[in-house]
């Protein structure tokens, strides 16, 4: 009896020790990461002007000043909102057309086989290359950026969607048919449900693509937006301004990734 209690005690201590060590490892890891970041920023700040040419590399304090300046002058909100708007509508357009196309072509194997080489040809066009064409067609306003963002999104969602539709087990479809499902029911209840995991992957991974499409569109020709801030500052050799705009963009992408993670976790809980 005593021996048993003793053994339990030892076991408990071992578990405790293990947990403590795990927690310590965790903190060492995070602290070392944080320390590395601080060292990097500090080294940048100190070495700028000594080893690094501040003209090319700027320095963290100057970049911060530029961010503050952007926020105070109101240019921050204005430009960020425009890029978000372009990316948002581009995403909606690209994701919606890609989902519909994937559902239709995934269901019609013969039609898919027919258009496949055409799709492959269009897919081989480097996405950036059609930017100038869109400027000619749609002008330098928001429309050309929306369409370019949609083009960046389309193929990612489409490819995932088609492989999703193809992954629906033949048996499910047969069973649903036998049980009297109509064509509409077949699509909404079986095929879209079955394709959902693949489709969701496409819909999730293409979100940053929409932002990049908008930014690239702004690089090619624009008067506002985060991409404009970057290329404008670069044209004026304002390195701190370039870094400031890139930091803002990275932060935007990060925030979107976090939101998206939360959303998809929520969605998984709902459907799972």
């Amino acid at each position: 009896m005593e021996a048993l209690a003793h053994r339990e005690h030892v076991l408990e201590r071992a578990v405790d020790e293990h947990r403590r060590r795990g927690r310590r490892d965790f903190w060492t890891l995070y602290l070392s990461r944080l320390a590395l970041l601080l060292v990097f920023l500090l080294a940048w700040q100190v070495l700028s002007g000594v080893l690094l040419d501040p003209y090319f590399f700027s320095r963290p304090s100057l970049i911060w000043d530029q961010v503050v300046l952007l926020v105070q002058s109101g240019r921050f909100a204005d430009n960020v909102l425009l890029t978000v708007e372009e990316a948002f509508f581009g995403y909606l357009l690209g994701a919606a057309t890609a989902t519909v196309a994937a559902a239709v072509l995934g269901l019609l194997p013969r039609a898919y086989a027919i258009v496949e080489p055409f799709l492959l040809a269009v897919y081989s066009i480097p996405s950036v290359a059609i930017g100038p064409l869109l400027i000619v067609w749609l002008g330098i306003g928001i429309n050309s950026k929306v369409v370019l963002a949609a083009y960046f999104v389309f193929f990612v969602v489409f490819m995932n969607g088609v492989s999703g539709v193809r992954s629906v087990p033949r048996g499910w479809i047969d069973v649903a048919r036998v049980m009297g499902a109509g064509r509409g029911q077949l699509v909404t209840k079986i095929i879209l449900r079955g394709a959902a995991p693949h489709l969701m992957t496409g819909l999730r991974t293409s979100v940053p693509q929409a932002v990049i499409g908008a930014i690239v569109g702004e690089f090619i020709s624009s008067q506002r937006g985060i991409g404009f801030l970057i290329s404008d500052a670069s044209a004026r050799y304002n390195t701190a301004g370039v870094f400031a705009a890139i930091s803002i963009l990275s932060l935007l992408v990060l925030v979107m990734a976090i939101l998206l993670n939360g959303l998809s976790r929520l969605g998984a809980r709902r459907t799972g």
């Binding site: 990461r33 590395l36 970041l37 090319f56 950036v128 940053p208 932002v211 990049i212 930014i215 690239v216 690089f219 991409g227 970057i230 290329s231 500052a233 670069s234 044209a235 050799y237 390195t239 370039v242 870094f243 890139i246 963009l249 990275s250 992408v253 990060l254 990734a257």
Partner: peptide, 21 residues
């Protein structure tokens, strides 16, 4: 995590900076 953070930065957005350099 640093490589992942770098990966998270849209690389095409760095274009003007690269041209500046």
């Amino acid at each position: 995590p640093y490589l992942l953070a770098l990966y998270g930065i849209p690389k095409l957005a760095l274009g003007p900076l690269i041209v500046l350099w």
